[in-house]
Nucleic acid binder design. Sequence first.
DNA 1: TTCCTTGCAAACGATTTGCATTGGA
DNA 2: TCCAATGCAAATCGTTTGCAAGGAA
Lengths: 148, 148
Amino acid sequence: MSAQRRSTVDLAEEHLRRSGVRTTPARRLVLEKLSRARGPHTADEINIILRSAVPLSSLYRTLSVLSSNGVLERFHDGAGVARYELAEWLTGHHHHITCSRCGSTRDIDFSQETETTIRRFADQAGASAGFRVTGHRLDLEGLCSQCR
Amino acid sequence: MSAQRRSTVDLAEEHLRRSGVRTTPARRLVLEKLSRARGPHTADEINIILRSAVPLSSLYRTLSVLSSNGVLERFHDGAGVARYELAEWLTGHHHHITCSRCGSTRDIDFSQETETTIRRFADQAGASAGFRVTGHRLDLEGLCSQCR
DNA sequence: TTCCTTGCAAACGATTTGCATTGGA
DNA sequence: TCCAATGCAAATCGTTTGCAAGGAA
């Protein structure tokens, strides 16, 4: 077999295996769907995409396991609902932009140069508050093309 | 009377009055406490600070009124709990840094120059996604001096 | 007086958990 | 086989709401 590029899902599952976390149909299903998604999704949205193949309580447990093992990341949107997406080491560092009218959220990228600049500002500002900065989250708010 | 600098609370109340929103003890109390706070607080924290002077349900209504009238801003922390703080037009634009170990959140400022740079990046990146950017939120994560 | 606001209790919705059962390695 | 994962139902917890009583303008 020639060295083939591993899919995101494969990488994630290998990571889990190495952590001693079992691969199960539900986990694979969630990883597959999220790797295909354009942005972060709520448990409810994932449940709909999966057509309830995984009951909500199990889905939450799945999302919890995947998050605490570093394969997914969780944050809370403007309505306070948890949204999940593949971890940055699988997708690359990125940000979000949310439409303040319809609430849709999209991934967004900054140039490497911009990221470097932001990181430098962040380290600096954090240090002056006595923090060692380990990461940042820059979310934009605006009006999407449909709502504009 | 000489022109005296208006307090943040006064400014907020005048703003409310102009919007036809009544001034009540509960609203004044919440504004006073939040204007003294170092950072954003949850309803529960405010309730404790106020020693339950305002019942939780009324407190939530108060926070809701103040938020929807532009005097407070609400966001959800890492645990998904709503946190409130005075709106930016009252406190000035700023960011937050949260300790990933103890969860404490502090306000943090960037220089005007840095803000300008960030805003420029944001506008640019948003535009390329078809959005008109109206604001941004840059939250830092790190370890505070105690937890470091 | 006229609405708006409050307080209490009940309702809600997202998320979590207990427990018996099933299934992966 | 053995321990972890699942499904269901019930429990939590932050937050919201209905309704009658109280209060600001």
